[in-house]
C-alpha cells in the first residue's frame, strides 16, 4: 500500500554525556521516499541514523520503523555504514562481502546455502559488478567498493535502505553514477541517505532533511542561496561543481 509509514519519529531527544545531540525531533518517512539527511559535521546526522537502526536508544520520544521497535525491524532494513572504518587490507573477496548481508536471514552456523549465493549474485548483478564476484575486495576502486557495500545492504532483501555518507571521498563523476543507481533502487525501496556535501543540489532530490541538533525539513525548491547560508551559519555560496571557470591566465 502506498503512503505506508516506514519511519516515524516523534518527540525524539538524544544526548551523549549530558550534551544534547538531537532535540525534539519529529520526522515521518513514507514508502518510496528518497530522503537526504544533510547538515554540518557533529550536527547529529549519524546519531539520527543509528537511532533509526536501533543501535542507540532515545532518551525521550519514540522511533518506529515499519511500526515496530527499530531493533525488531532490522530484517527489513539494508544498511551501508560509513566507509572509512573498513580495513582496506582485509582478506576477503567480493562475493563473501555481499554474502554478509545474508546473515540473520535464518542463517545459523555453518556455510551459506545455495539460495543465499543466488541472492548475492542477483544483487551483484543489480549494481553491475557480477563479473567481479571473485575479485579481492581491496583491489577494487573506491566507487566499486561502495557499490559492493550497497549490494551487501541489498542482499538482506530490505524494504528500507539506509546509507551513511556513501559518496564520501569519491570524485564527482563516480558520485553521480552512484546516485543514479540509488535512484533506480528508489523505485522499489525507501531510501534514507546521510550526505555531508552541500553541493548535492540535484534535480531529482525528493526530500532534504537538515539535522543540526534540531531537525528541519524543507521542500527542495527552497534550497537556494540564502537558505544554505541559514543552515550552515554565515554567508555561503553554492559551488557549481558542474562547471569550470575558464583557464587561468599567467600571473592571475
Amino acid at each position: 500500500m502506498s503512503g505506508e509509514k516506514v519511519v516515524s519519529i516523534d518527540g525524539l531527544t538524544f544526548s551523549y554525556d549530558g550534551l544534547k545531540v538531537l532535540e525534539d525531533v519529529n520526522l515521518q518517512i513514507s514508502k518510496n521516499d528518497f530522503v537526504w539527511i544533510v547538515g554540518p559535521n557533529g550536527g547529529g546526522k549519524t546519531t539520527l541514523v543509528k537511532l533509526i537502526l536501533g543501535l542507540l536508544q532515545p532518551r525521550r520520544g519514540t522511533v518506529r520503523v515499519f511500526g515496530l521497535e527499530p531493533a525488531e525491524a532490522r530484517s527489513r532494513i539494508g544498511y551501508m555504514p560509513q566507509f572509512a572504518h573498513l580495513d582496506p587490507q582485509f582478506p576477503i573477496n567480493v562475493l563473501d562481502v555481499v554474502l554478509m548481508g545474508r546473515l540473520g536471514n535464518g542463517n545459523g552456523l555453518g556455510p551459506f546455502r545455495k539460495k543465499d549465493k543466488a541472492v548475492a549474485e542477483r544483487v551483484l548483478d543489480e549494481v553491475g559488478l557480477l563479473d567481479m564476484s571473485r575479485r579481492s575486495f581491496s583491489s577494487l576502486s573506491g566507487g566499486q567498493q561502495r557499490r559492493i557495500l550497497i549490494a551487501r545492504a541489498l542482499a538482506g532483501e530490505p524494504d528500507l535502505l539506509i546509507l551513511d555518507e556513501p559518496t564520501a571521498n569519491l570524485d564527482l563523476l563516480v558520485e553521480k553514477e552512484l546516485y543514479d543507481l540509488l535512484r533506480e533502487l528508489n523505485s522499489r525501496l525507501t531510501i534514507v541517505m546521510v550526505s555531508h556535501d552541500p553541493a548535492f543540489v540535484s534535480d531529482n532530490v525528493e526530500r532534504v532533511v537538515c539535522v543540526k541538533r534540531k531537525v528541519s525539513e524543507h521542500p527542495t525548491c527552497e534550497l537556494e542561496g540564502n537558505f544554505i547560508g541559514e543552515l550552515f551559519g554565515g554567508e555561503m555560496r553554492l559551488v557549481r561543481h558542474d562547471k569550470h571557470i575558464g583557464k587561468r591566465k599567467n600571473g592571475e
Binding site: 532490522r74 572504518h85 576477503i92 546473515l103 540473520g104 552456523l109
Partner: peptide, 20 residues
C-alpha cells in the same frame, strides 16, 4: 562453525549488529 559470523564481526562490526 562460526566462520561467517566471526568474519562478519571482524570485517564490519556495525553492519553485523544491524544484521541481528
Amino acid at each position: 562453525l562460526f566462520y561467517n559470523q566471526l568474519t562478519a564481526v571482524c570485517f564490519d562490526e556495525e553492519f553485523a549488529r544491524v544484521r541481528g
